[in-house]
Design a protein around this nucleic acid. Structure first.
Lengths: 196, 196
DNA sequence: CCTACCGATCGGTAGG
DNA sequence: CCTACCGATCGGTAGG
């Protein structure tokens, strides 16, 4: 029953491939509209084979969310730790956030943002802890901006509005369009930060 | 085959009831996760009965989107037509938009925003025309603000960021929480409009 | 990882 | 609008 059909290394590779393909499909079609058969086919497998690597479709979703969030968090926390002036740090954080939401091959964060509801409540705590680290980091950034007089609104609402507007770009940004991620970051800074 | 089981008036009422219940369910659970049986039950019908009023589940979705959009558009256009100063008009538009997204019983616009992908491509044009009127109105508002020196960023990006951040409130705003829609509107004005 | 399959669910329909 | 039902799809499993 518990016979091994793949070497450890092969199994790890195939698992990673499943997570990557699932992220892309979940992002493009949504979790509910993506079938296990779609995922298997995208990796050249038969329909039952993903279950060699994951207990359930929900476990695939949680893997997509966790792995994407961990990768993004490490990068973002690295930037937040740099000794930059508030305005420059904000610009750098925004630019990185945009990269993780809109850049080539970065399907994980959009899935996290748009498929949260599809995740079984029992599994949500596993992702929530990471999400909170994310929010805490941005909250500190916004408070720093407010102390510097660059933001006037309530910090919590400001944080939610800023992240919300960046998030919304997932819906309308087109990489082949005329606007670049750098321009987008500049516009965000111009919009959200007042001059003193 | 085409026998009539309800009077015209009854049929209209039941249809409206189906649209209202569907809007709420689509908003709460998503389109894919809502079954015809859920909708029927919410209206005290049996599972096959919604198809007396609608050809398909997709037709229910399009009805939800169209009816919500038409209602919102009429109200929003009324405000845009008022002779208000740019800052005051912006505040009024934001407040109304928040009402239609977050207010009691207003499930239509969130469904439009979050279930667009679930709508068959063949049906999208029916809703797109209304959406464009919406965007045009907001675009004119943003240009007016830019001319008045209250916004500095590119008008298209500014419009998308503003609507995106308001839209995001659907995900985190809780009516029973400590913040009111009026405060939210004030914070949006403080965030997005610079002083001259 | 594959083959073969099950059990449940779901959108939709025929007929009254 | 109800009853009774179909056909397809889908997540998941047994066994090798």
């Amino acid at each position: 029953m518990n016979v091994v059909y793949l070497s450890d290394a092969d199994a790890r590779n195939r698992r990673a491939e499943l997570v990557r393909a699932s992220a892309r499909l979940f992002r493009e079609r949504g979790f509910d509209a993506t079938t296990i058969r779609d995922i298997a086919q995208a990796c050249g497998m038969r329909s039952g084979s993903p279950f060699y690597h994951f207990k359930s479709k929900q476990e695939i979703l949680v893997a997509v969310m966790e792995e994407g969030l961990v990768a993004g968090l490490v990068t973002i926390e690295g930037i937040a730790a740099q000794p930059l002036a508030p305005r420059a740090k904000f610009r750098a954080l925004v630019r990185t956030q945009l990269e993780f939401m809109l850049g080539e091959g970065h399907d994980f964060i959009p899935v996290l943002l748009y498929e949260w509801r599809a995740l079984d409540e029992a599994l949500q705590p596993r992702v929530l802890a990471l999400k909170e680290r994310y929010d805490a980091l941005w909250h500190a950034m916004v408070v720093e901006l407010k102390d510097a007089g660059l933001i006037q609104a309530d910090p919590t609402v400001a944080r939610l509005f800023i992240l919300g507007s960046l998030t919304s770009a997932v819906q309308w940004f087109r990489p082949e369009g005329s606007i670049s991620l750098d321009q987008l970051a500049d516009d965000a800074v111009a919009m959200f930060l007042h001059s003193r």
